[in-house]
Amino acid sequence: MNHNSYQELVKKHMPKRSKIKKLFLAFFSGGMIGIGSQLLSNFLVYLFKIPIKDSYVWVGIILVLVTALLTGLGFFDDLVSFFEAGLIIPTTGFSHAVISGALDGKREGFIVGISPSMFKLCASVIVSGVTTSFILSIIGWLIYG
C-alpha cells in the first residue's frame, strides 16, 4: 500500500470535532477575558484615581499573575485544553508557557532546571517579538527620520 492511499485510509477513520464549536469556545473565552480586563481597568481608574494608560499596565500584570497562580495550582492546563486559542492568544498564554516550563524544571535545580526550561516554550515568542520590533523601528527611522 502506498503512502497516499494509506493516508486516505487514516483520514477516513479519524474522529471529527466540530470547528464551529471550537471557534465559539475560543471567541467566548477570549472575549470574556477582554470584557473582564476592561471592567478591571475601569474599576482601577475609579478606585485609585490613576490615569487610564497606567491602568492597562496594571491589568496586564494582574492577568499574568492570576494565570501564573492557576498554572501553579494545576487548573490552567485543563482550561487551555478546553478553550484552546481563547486562552493561548492573550497574555495569559505567555504566562502559562513560562510558568509551566519553570515547574517542569524544578527538580533539576535553579541553574540547569528552572531557568532554562522557563523559556523552553516562549523563547520563540520573545525572539520573534524582538526581531520584529527591531525591523519595524529601522523602517520607522528610515521613513520619519
Binding site: 498554572t71 494545576g74 484552546e84 509551566s100
Partner: peptide
C-alpha cells in the same frame, strides 16, 4: 510539552 502546559 512540559507537564503543566495545556495543549489542545
Amino acid at each position: 510539552y512540559p507537564i503543566e502546559y495545556g495543549s489542545p
